[in-house]
Write a protein that binds this DNA or RNA. Structure first.
Length: 429
RNA sequence: GGGGGGUUUCCCGAGCGGUCAAAGGGGUCAGACUGUAAAUCUGAUGGCAGUGCCUUCGCAGGUUCGAAUCCUGCACCCCCCA
């Protein structure tokens, strides 16, 4: 058993614990069971879940047993922590689909098959859903002093806002999560809960409840919230969250997100997310600082994460696409080389006849590819010198594209600006 | 229930009868500089056509040669008094 506490600490993943002094020893004694909760708001995980997931992963690697709790029940209510408004309630069907989607992705991070420390996936709907209202009030609610609940940051912040209230339902959220902890303690001897720093109140609520109900002392640990150096949220793209599902964010796009990360965040992300050990990360960071323009850190980070999320084949596609797009002028490629990329960057198929005669006006090509949202937008881009065909700048609005502009047998590479790419494929009707 | 204020283009926010597709800021996009970074600077930012047309200022009507701007009704939001 390796010292997971020290490992997490140097990685900067420990924000607060219930017992800094004794937790390291407690974890070193024997394998423990640790859980983190995931809110099933969508059918895919995103980068926001990555912290908790990789923390569970590190616990497992250190010899402990992780439990991933999917909030099928609590997801119906919505955690008010860190939220400014009440969440839209999800239907049971939607929740079920979301839970299934998330479960399948977790397999990439956690080993569910190991006989001794195999991860366990639980859905709190399985026990919360069976609770009767009166029964819950009597067995659980009774142990929650309202004045303590009101003192929690998550509740106070919401009550202090004049423009949004806090419904009774949301107010009750922490009871459910608290009970989850007790349940997992009873069923799996789970004595440690981890979560983001905004979960502190919910975690301690569970610890209090366990003490009152079962007379045991459970533990909690939070990690810092994932933000970028400029204060904005990590993992936000133009089109929304950076999803882990390949159908939502392809390997190339995922890879590119990390390549584009600013220097100030690279070190932190390497430590947070990658499996690389300390000497390795320190070496990469040192190399990066020596010559930041080579983006050593970003490259390493992007490769590690893309491999983790999309596998070796996904990484190859992403790197190949990057080589092609960010290399020199594009020509003499084959369809075979482009086909893997085709599904990953915005792409469109057009009839080959478009290229005949006068050819396809570049303005129309940009619109068709999705790089421009209107003809005016396309004109603007060209006017300002931001339009490229096969990485060669197209400086005239009147430019028309013909068969000679194909990069491979049937495909053409369009680009708007420095790094927005799209492929057009011309097919026989 | 009574009184007052509001609803503007992606967001915030000016505009209060024509010169308004609508100031300013944010965001976004493009360019320069770089390193597919950050910061900075420049330009663009309803649609279609190129000195014109169409659609937009909560919704529906109305007054005007002409309205985002005035009137009427409706909807939603906020504030004060009960």
């Amino acid at each position: 058993m390796s010292d997971v506490f020290a490992e997490l600490a140097w990685r900067g993943l420990i924000h607060q614990t219930t017992d800094d002094a004794h937790l390291p020893g407690w974890l070193g004694e024997r394998p423990r069971t640790v859980y983190a909760g995931f809110d099933p708001t969508a059918d895919s995980l995103h980068v926001g879940h990555l912290m908790a997931l990789t923390i569970l992963r590190r616990f497992q690697q250190a010899g402990h047993r992780p439990i991933a709790l999917v909030g099928g029940a609590t997801g119906m209510i919505g955690d008010p922590s860190g939220k400014s408004e009440e969440r839209q309630l999800l239907s049971e069907d939607a929740l079920r689909a979301n839970v299934e989607g998330m479960q399948s992705q977790m397999r990439r991070f956690l080993d569910f098959d190991d006989p001794t420390r195999g991860a366990v996936l639980v859905n709190n709907y399985d026990w919360v859903g069976r609770f009767g209202y009166l029964e819950f009030l009597r067995d659980v609610g009774k142990h929650f002093p309202v004045n303590v609940m009101l003192a929690k940051d998550s509740v106070r912040n919401r009550l202090e806002r004049t423009d949004s209230g806090l419904s009774y339902t949301e107010f009750s959220y922490m009871l459910l999560q608290a009970y989850d902890f007790v349940h997992l303690y009873r069923e799996y001897d789970c004595q440690l809960q981890v979560g983001g720093s905004d979960q502190w109140g919910n975690i301690t609520a569970g610890i209090d409840l366990a003490r009152r109900l079962d007379g045991v002392q459970l533990h909690g640990m939070t990690c810092p919230l994932l933000t970028k150096a400029d204060g904005t949220k990590m993992g936000k793209t133009e089109s929304g969250a950076l999803w882990l599902a390949a159908e939502r964010v392809g390997p190339y796009q995922f890879y590119q997100y990390w390549i584009n990360l600013e220097d100030a965040d690279v070190d932190k992300c390497l430590r947070f997310f990658t499996d690389l050990d300390r000497p390795r990360i320190e070496a990469v960071v040192a190399e990066h600082l020596e010559d930041p323009s080579r983006r050593t850190g970003q490259r390493c980070l992007a490769a590690e994460l893309t491999r983790l999320v999309h596998g070796e084949s996904g990484l190859r596609i992403a790197q190949r696409a990057t080589e092609i797009f960010f290399g020199a002028e594009i020509s003499e490629l084959t369809d075979a080389e482009l086909v893997g990329i085709f599904t990953d960057v915005p792409s469109r198929e057009l009839p080959r006849t478009e290229l005949a005669g006068e050819g396809l006006a570049i303005v129309d090509a940009l619109c068709a590819s999705g790089l421009a949202k209107s003809k005016g937008d396309a004109r603007r881009t060209i006017d300002q010198g931001g339009a490229y065909v096969n990485n060669r700048r197209a400086d005239s609005i009147d430019r028309c594209l013909g068969p000679a502009d194909l990069a491979s047998e049937t495909m053409m590479v369009l680009r708007a600006g420095k790094k927005r790419y799209a492929l057009l494929r011309f097919v026989e009707p």
